[in-house]
């Protein structure tokens, strides 16, 4: 009985908690404890969000375009680097330590630099996205490629498999779970990366829009934009989860 309660709780408790926070927030603003122009209430944010949707659409598309382009490029490059490192131990030895050290650099701080180098078009934003997505992808891919029991490779060797066959028949599929964990992180980073890139200036994008409404002190619109960014990241995350679900049918079979 108690166990059952625990199971229900695991899913509903966070929702109840979130609802409680929102109600509390709404009350604080409605009672005038905090002024509206400093903190808009949740209801305000949602209403404004719906109102600005038509004008924000173009910004949303731009940000999405930058994020997805950057993510794709990062996937391709991380795959290439991971394959190289996996096949050539010299490259692995040379790159691995740098990779780990570079993880500690907050890549976002490079955004102003990119703006100076590449101007105010899409390119500097895409560069930020590539950079923030690249490392979680490479690291998770390498981890995945190393997770395979080496006896699988010995078995394939005994069947005269070549290196490419060992890679695509055994190594790569075994790296998929790790790859997808990395991809989910990278996907959420990609939206934030694009927005931060846009803060440095540009014609369109959620980051550009945010800067504009902030400068006119429309705090409710800032909040609404943040909400949209969060929502976008979540949707991307869920899409990747769905792709993983579709690409890895054997996992479903095990759970049945």
């Amino acid at each position: 009985m108690r166990k059952k309660w625990g199971n229900i709780g695991n899913k509903t408790i966070p929702f109840i908690f979130l609802a409680a926070i929102l109600v509390f927030w709404q009350l604080i603003v409605d009672r005038g404890i905090i002024a509206r122009y400093i903190l808009p209430s949740p209801v305000d944010v949602i209403l404004v969000g719906m109102k600005i949707l038509p004008e924000i659409k173009v910004h949303l598309y731009t940000t999405l375009q930058e994020a997805l382009t950057g993510l794709m490029v990062a996937i391709v490059f991380s795959l290439l680097l991971a394959m190289l490192m996996d096949n050539f131990s010299l490259i692995q030895k040379a790159v691995q330590p740098l990779l780990i050290v570079s993880q500690t650099i907050p890549t976002m701080v490079l955004a102003p630099l990119f703006a100076m180098w590449f101007g105010f078009g899409l390119l500097p934003k895409i560069m930020v996205v590539i950079l923030v997505c690249f490392f979680p992808l490479v690291v998770s891919l390498l981890e995945g490629l190393n997770s395979l029991d080496p006896d699988f490779l010995n078995l394939m060797k005994s069947m005269k498999a070549n290196r490419w066959q060992m890679f695509y028949l055994a190594k790569f599929p075994s790296a998929l779970p790790n790859f997808f964990s990395g991809l989910k992180i990278a996907a959420t980073y990609s939206i934030i990366g694009a927005v931060i890139g846009e803060w440095m200036g540009g014609k369109a994008g959620l980051g550009v829009y945010m800067t504009r409404v902030r400068q006119s002190f429309a705090l409710d619109k800032v909040f609404a934009t943040i909400l949209i960014i969060v929502f976008l990241s979540l949707v991307l995350f869920k899409i990747i989860e769905l792709i993983q679900f579709l690409l890895m049918p054997w996992r479903r079979a095990i759970n049945k």
Binding site: D151, S158, M159, K160, A161, L169, S174, L176
Partner: peptide, 28 residues
């Protein structure tokens, strides 16, 4: 590649169905 060798572990690839696992030598 001169002998058919079955390892101590079954070493079936978890992501391949039985038919594709057993077909591995042919695929190779």
């Amino acid at each position: 590649g001169q002998v058919s060798y079955m390892y101590q572990k079954d070493l079936l690839l978890p992501w391949k169905r039985v038919i594709d696992n057993t077909a591995l030598p042919l695929i190779i």
